[in-house]
Write a protein that binds this DNA or RNA. Structure first.
Lengths: 250, 250
DNA sequence: CGGCTGTTTGATGAGTGTCAACGAATGTGG
DNA sequence: CCACATTCGTTGACACTCATCAAACAGCCG
């Protein structure tokens, strides 16, 4: 691992990468919901049954593929540490990064519909993830209402996110909206909303946001010049959280 | 109802509006899935239990609101005839048409996550819809695995649709992609893929696609000039289905 | 040190939003 | 059923954002 990335991950003498920006078991989307912008555990004994079927903390190297488009859908995955990306390939062969995942998030929902993954998921940098056999989860959901509800609510949440992100945005707003979303996610899990690791390359981010690499670079430059936020050494620093809202409401 | 709209709805001496482009009970997304581009009934006795909790065929006048942002989430709805639109209002107060629904589709999934609808749904023109009490459906899903699976698969399908629609498109491709989607939906339900009612105003469609009204108008004009498709009297006619793919793959 | 890969900067043009005006279609009230 | 008002769609001129192309620069790796 490079020095800058270590720094990005908040690596120092006291904190190891995996203990800093990681997700504790029981704190992922499966077992928590958002109350007042914070993730809190769902108050249900049954839901802990999930822990028994999860295979925890599998390591992934940079660019390692977790699952591929077309493969039989067998598992859901949660991010334990690091960041992952899901990629959709259209019939022109162009790749589009559909989602970028941080610790605690669940990956693989698009495979449920017909039993095949419809995207490819890769590790952005080295990280770790948990493996959830879907069939077992599905059976648990049929035994425990709380789990069934959690599953349905997670998917409903994802649908809502997509609905909202369809809004009209210019380049600056697209970027700010994305950063704000990640900031909220980190905050909801007890990390700083103003500073967090960001190992995503600008190429990937530009692709995800539907912008040219050059436009994204220029947009970052403007936001830094205006003292709104900064990307340095694979770490985002937000100087002015309120300014983010202002930009989105212009 | 206006004369042109009657025509659009295929209204003549022999066919009533409601019998032409309507959805038969048991043929909506809840009870069918897609096999070879066609909707077929899910082979399961239990799933018919849904019919017992559905309240069928409620009339809706043009612009009638089915549910509103912020209201407690109590029901899902399926379109029986006509078209409906879901609207999301951002914090600038701007309205964005998130989805446009045709007969057989289910509305209201975004309310599951926290018990409140997050969008507003309105009838585009007069139509009819069915009402499904969510709590009862939820309990049925807990009793019958087939129903639980159907629910999860429907939501997975919707997630996939959003993921894919995030692709990079120019104005022409946005329009063609949308029309192709509607065409597929009609086809999958046994109607013509080449000609179907289209009561959506260009203002609404432009809003939905994230285009200016003028750009949409010019795009329709180009597609007509190139003998690809035509919008007339609230009816879409596709001259060349293959051309749609060509446009999307350019 | 040299070769990648990722990022930045500048110049240019295509696509699309905006403004303005008009025409067509639809709805309303007398 | 007609006259008017209103909404909806079309067309042209123009401005602006952003993609594209080209090239240089910076960081990282062997």
């Amino acid at each position: 691992m490079s020095k800058t990335l270590m720094k990005a991950m908040n690596f120092d003498q006291n904190k190891k990468i995996d203990s800093a920006y990681q997700n504790n078991c029981g704190d992922c989307e499966l077992c928590t919901h958002t109350v007042n912008r914070r993730r809190v555990r769902v108050d249900s004994e049954e839901i802990l049954a999930i822990e028994n079927i999860i295979q925890s903390h599998t390591q992934a190297e940079k660019s390692q593929i977790i699952y591929k488009t077309g493969q039989p859908f067998t598992h859901l995955f949660t991010v334990h540490s690091g960041m992952f990306k899901s990629i959709h390939t259209n019939n022109k062969g162009e790749e589009r990064i559909v989602e970028i995942f941080i610790p605690g998030q669940v990956m693989g929902f698009d495979g449920i519909r017909d039993g095949r993954y419809k995207t490819t998921v890769k590790a952005i940098h080295s990280g770790s993830y948990c493996i959830i056999p879907y069939q077992q989860l599905n059976e648990l959901a049929f035994k425990h209402k709380a789990i069934q509800d959690r599953l349905l609510k997670m998917m409903s949440e994802k649908i809502l996110q997509f609905e909202i992100s369809h809004s009209e945005f210019n380049a600056k707003q697209k970027l700010v909206h994305f950063i704000q979303g990640v900031s909220e996610l980190y905050y909801s899990r007890g990390f700083s909303a103003k500073q967090f690791p960001f190992p995503v390359s600008q190429r990937d981010l530009a692709n995800h946001l539907g912008l040219a690499e050059e436009t994204l670079s220029r947009t970052f430059a403007k936001l830094k010049k205006d003292d709104v936020l900064m990307l340095k050494d694979h770490q985002i620093t937000i100087f002015d959280l309120d300014a983010l809202d202002d930009i989105l409401n212009t």
